[in-house]
Protein backbone atom coordinates (compact mmCIF):
# COMPACT_ATOMS: atom_id res chain seq x y z
CA UNK A 1 0.00 0.00 0.00
CA UNK A 2 1.21 3.52 -0.72
CA UNK A 3 1.84 5.81 2.25
CA UNK A 4 -0.96 8.18 1.30
CA UNK A 5 -3.42 5.35 0.85
CA UNK A 6 -2.40 3.92 4.19
CA UNK A 7 -3.02 7.26 5.83
CA UNK A 8 -6.36 7.55 4.13
CA UNK A 9 -7.43 4.08 5.07
CA UNK A 10 -6.22 4.05 8.66
CA UNK A 11 -6.33 7.62 9.90
CA UNK A 12 -9.05 9.38 11.83
CA UNK A 13 -11.91 10.68 9.77
CA UNK A 14 -11.44 7.94 7.20
CA UNK A 15 -14.71 8.66 5.45
CA UNK A 16 -14.05 12.39 5.09
CA UNK A 17 -10.59 11.63 3.75
CA UNK A 18 -12.03 9.28 1.16
CA UNK A 19 -14.63 11.79 0.06
CA UNK A 20 -12.12 14.63 -0.25
CA UNK A 21 -9.62 12.45 -2.07
CA UNK A 22 -12.16 11.10 -4.57
CA UNK A 23 -13.43 14.61 -5.25
CA UNK A 24 -9.85 15.80 -5.71
CA UNK A 25 -9.24 13.02 -8.26
CA UNK A 26 -12.42 13.79 -10.17
CA UNK A 27 -11.81 17.54 -10.05
CA UNK A 28 -8.31 17.08 -11.41
CA UNK A 29 -9.62 14.96 -14.26
CA UNK A 30 -12.38 17.47 -14.99
CA UNK A 31 -10.00 20.46 -14.69
CA UNK A 32 -12.22 22.00 -12.01
CA UNK A 33 -11.70 23.22 -8.47
CA UNK A 34 -12.79 20.58 -5.92
CA UNK A 35 -15.31 23.12 -4.58
CA UNK A 36 -17.03 23.13 -7.96
CA UNK A 37 -17.74 19.38 -7.83
CA UNK A 38 -20.97 18.65 -6.00
CA UNK A 39 -22.21 15.34 -4.68
CA UNK A 40 -25.20 15.11 -6.99
CA UNK A 41 -23.21 15.83 -10.16
CA UNK A 42 -22.91 13.10 -12.75
CA UNK A 43 -19.59 12.52 -14.51
CA UNK A 44 -21.19 13.95 -17.62
CA UNK A 45 -22.10 17.11 -15.66
CA UNK A 46 -18.43 17.71 -14.89
CA UNK A 47 -17.37 16.87 -18.43
CA UNK A 48 -15.69 13.49 -17.87
CA UNK A 49 -16.03 11.13 -20.86
CA UNK A 50 -15.47 7.37 -21.03
CA UNK A 51 -11.70 7.63 -21.29
CA UNK A 52 -11.65 10.15 -18.42
CA UNK A 53 -13.70 7.72 -16.34
CA UNK A 54 -11.18 4.94 -16.89
CA UNK A 55 -8.41 7.33 -15.81
CA UNK A 56 -10.37 8.30 -12.68
CA UNK A 57 -10.84 4.67 -11.73
CA UNK A 58 -7.14 4.01 -12.21
CA UNK A 59 -6.30 7.00 -9.99
CA UNK A 60 -8.76 5.81 -7.34
CA UNK A 61 -7.26 2.30 -7.37
CA UNK A 62 -3.78 3.73 -6.97
CA UNK A 63 -4.75 6.21 -4.24
CA UNK A 64 -6.60 3.70 -2.06
CA UNK A 65 -4.79 0.52 -3.09
CA UNK A 66 -8.02 -1.18 -4.06
CA UNK A 67 -9.38 -3.09 -7.06
CA UNK A 68 -12.44 -1.45 -8.59
CA UNK A 69 -14.63 -3.90 -10.51
CA UNK A 70 -15.36 -1.96 -13.67
CA UNK A 71 -15.70 -3.03 -17.30
CA UNK A 72 -16.28 -0.21 -19.79
CA UNK A 73 -18.52 -2.53 -21.82
CA UNK A 74 -21.08 -2.86 -19.04
CA UNK A 75 -20.66 0.20 -16.82
CA UNK A 76 -24.07 -0.32 -15.22
CA UNK A 77 -23.62 -3.98 -14.41
CA UNK A 78 -20.85 -3.81 -11.85
CA UNK A 79 -21.50 -3.21 -8.16
CA UNK A 80 -19.52 -0.03 -8.52
CA UNK A 81 -22.17 2.62 -9.20
CA UNK A 82 -20.82 5.51 -11.26
CA UNK A 83 -24.09 7.39 -11.68
CA UNK A 84 -23.15 10.33 -9.42
CA UNK A 85 -20.16 11.65 -7.49
CA UNK A 86 -21.92 10.57 -4.27
CA UNK A 87 -22.41 7.02 -5.54
CA UNK A 88 -18.76 6.79 -6.58
CA UNK A 89 -17.64 7.93 -3.13
CA UNK A 90 -19.98 5.42 -1.49
CA UNK A 91 -18.57 2.71 -3.75
CA UNK A 92 -14.99 3.58 -2.85
CA UNK A 93 -15.82 3.63 0.88
CA UNK A 94 -17.32 0.17 0.57
CA UNK A 95 -14.35 -1.20 -1.35
CA UNK A 96 -11.84 0.31 1.10
CA UNK A 97 -13.76 -1.24 3.98
CA UNK A 98 -13.93 -4.64 2.28
CA UNK A 99 -10.44 -4.79 0.87
CA UNK A 100 -8.59 -3.33 3.88
CA UNK A 101 -10.65 -5.15 6.49
Amino acid sequence: MTKSALKVAQGDGVMTDIKDKVIAIIAEQAVLEPADVSMDNTLEDVGIDSLGLVECIFAIEEAFDIQVPFNANEPNQSDFDISTIASIIAGVEKLVAEQHA
Partner: peptide, 8 residues
Protein backbone atom coordinates in the same frame (compact mmCIF):
# COMPACT_ATOMS: atom_id res chain seq x y z
CA UNK B 1 -6.38 -4.70 -19.16
CA UNK B 2 -5.79 -1.07 -18.29
CA UNK B 3 -8.33 0.15 -20.80
CA UNK B 4 -11.05 -2.06 -19.27
CA UNK B 5 -12.50 -3.13 -22.59
CA UNK B 6 -11.46 -6.80 -22.40
CA UNK B 7 -13.86 -9.58 -21.55
CA UNK B 8 -12.95 -12.00 -18.77
Amino acid sequence: EGLRVMSK
